[in-house]
């Protein structure tokens, strides 16, 4: 190994430097490079579950949010093969839930939708599951619409690691995995969740919604109406 390539790797042919302990996606973001992702948020410990950030590192597929780079590593991300697989992952996420964008307050500010635009997802391809997932409107300030949950666990991590409240959890296994609220009744109103919580502001899709502000920014003028999600390494969503 030559000393030149110490602490650098290549991402789609571009040289990216990294510091000890950084993952591939963290180093890429610091260098201003976008790798598609949903469950990763730079403020939180990686979860490695959505697999959208999968890259090829030295020819092997790995989640770039959990994989640390090696000196001289050759990382491929924006390739037809990987983008085709990412699109298939998105299509599976879309058919597993009920993602009816025209009625969703998060439309235009939704990372799932914007990533699907970015990757040219023109149809869900698979058969729709049309699952039955009732909403939780019990809380006076916030609404939970589980129809849109993609199990990224960001609210779970935020509530546990930042708010110290453990309001949310993922329950069940495999296709039965679902988001639950940690209260005997299962209702958000029966927890100490508030709008000041970090967990109230991390949902990349339209599950955790503040009531009565849904259309303050009209559709067509929202974050990803103006710029595609890949324009920045990690999106800052309007009104978040």
């Amino acid at each position: 190994m030559s000393p030149d390539n110490k602490s650098t790797f290549t991402l789609d042919g571009k040289t990216v430097s990294y510091t000890e302990g950084q993952t591939i996606i963290q180093a890429a973001m610091a260098a201003g490079e976008y790798i598609p992702h949903l469950c990763f948020n730079p403020e939180f410990k990686p979860h490695g579950s959505c697999k959208l950030c999968t890259v090829k590192a030295n020819g092997r597929q790995t989640a770039s949010c959990t994989q640390q780079p090696q000196p001289g590593m050759v990382v491929e991300s924006d390739t037809k093969e990987l983008n085709d697989e990412r699109r298939a992952l998105l299509q599976m996420l879309f058919v597993e839930g009920n993602h009816f964008c025209p009625s969703c307050e998060k439309s235009g500010n939704c990372q799932l939708q914007a990533t699907a635009y970015q990757l040219n997802m023109m149809s869900p391809h698979f058969d729709q599951f049309f699952p039955d997932r009732p909403v939780d409107a019990s809380h006076s300030e916030y609404l939970l619409d589980f129809n849109r949950c993609i199990l990224c666990s960001l609210c779970v991590r935020a509530s546990r690691d930042v708010d110290g409240k453990n309001v949310f959890a993922l329950s069940g296994r495999g296709i039965k995995s679902h988001l639950i609220v940690n209260a005997k009744s299962g209702n958000l109103a029966d927890t100490d969740f508030t709008g000041e919580d970090k967990a109230a502001h991390v949902c990349p899709v339209g599950v955790i919604l503040k009531k009565r502000v849904g259309f303050v920014i009209p559709i067509g003028k929202r974050t990803f109406d103006e710029h595609p999600i890949g324009a920045t390494p990690h999106p800052t969503v309007k009104g978040a």
Partner: peptide, 15 residues
């Protein structure tokens, strides 16, 4: 359009 592609509004009756 949405309805042809994923059922759209009419599919909201599916549950």
């Amino acid at each position: 359009g949405a309805c042809a592609i994923n059922g759209g509004l009419p599919a909201q009756r599916n549950h």
